[in-house]
Design a protein around this nucleic acid. Sequence first.
DNA 1: CAGACTTAGTTATGCGCATAAGGTTATCTG
DNA 2: CAGATAACCTTATGCGCATAACTAAGTCTG
Lengths: 162, 162
Amino acid sequence: MDFDQADALNQAIRLLSLRHRARTATLLTPLGLHPGQEALLLELARTGPMIQAQLGEALGCEPPSVTLMTRKLEASGQIRRTPAPTDKRASIVELTDSGKALVEQVKQLWCDLAEETVTGLPAETVAELPGILTTLTGNVDTRRLRHPHGRRDGEQELPTRP
Amino acid sequence: MDFDQADALNQAIRLLSLRHRARTATLLTPLGLHPGQEALLLELARTGPMIQAQLGEALGCEPPSVTLMTRKLEASGQIRRTPAPTDKRASIVELTDSGKALVEQVKQLWCDLAEETVTGLPAETVAELPGILTTLTGNVDTRRLRHPHGRRDGEQELPTRP
DNA sequence: CAGACTTAGTTATGCGCATAAGGTTATCTG
DNA sequence: CAGATAACCTTATGCGCATAACTAAGTCTG
């Protein structure tokens, strides 16, 4: 691939990252959230209570980041962190009632943003888009390789639904 | 658009941002660069010496960010900032010889990264990809709207005359 | 069972990005 | 030409993300 093509692609990805994040930020501000936090709340809504390590895995970010994000969301009352009874190292993260209510607003906003984002693209392209982006992500993902065999400590202990 | 589709899209964009940036970081580290700086160097290589405000416009980031980035790249010897003779407010940014040499390495790396990124995608998709991403970016770009009439101080000094 | 891993989480630090606020210089206008 | 306005840049501050280095707790093995 020649430089101009490569540059066009890399720059496009970089700019999309910046702008999508900025747009997310301005939409989330009225809800009192910063970008990144909405993903945490949505993940909790999707999967239910979970350990911080699992959250980090799902969100694709590192433990120290999870520590800070959960701390701030706890301070603002959207989530609760309780010591895990079966493992004194771990803490279980779950949505509060306030958090659950907030998630509903985030979901609405998420739909609006997606629609805004794909304006003007043919429906066919829109349909393939998530798959394409996921392929790109997989191609540059160095994260999986660092945790080669997926089994983690305590992974079986929380059955998916009590 | 229903929530699942919207979520798939938004999450895909968020994860691509994270991973592409992370991959960029690990590739740039051996060159002594952090992600974001490569874009600045490439822009200087493309357009030649320019004012910080123009750099910010080209890179899509705000003046304070440009100040910090240029300061660090100046400290590491890749760029030079000299007061503009015609405008005592402005400073002209340009590549040093060391910076020019570094850009060549960045270009190579940029090609490798792009090729790695699109691995496994049909050539047709790869060809349309930059355009698609640029459309997405334009759809969520709030930046242009804030500087409604594009005219900037001194913009005419480099003749844009038709 | 004792020591060697491994895993969960935290603190410290640094970068890129943002917004808000301020200083200086250039330009426009009454 | 003087005052208002706008443009360039900077400092201060804050968030999300990262890595490195640490503690505490669970697990595995000799």
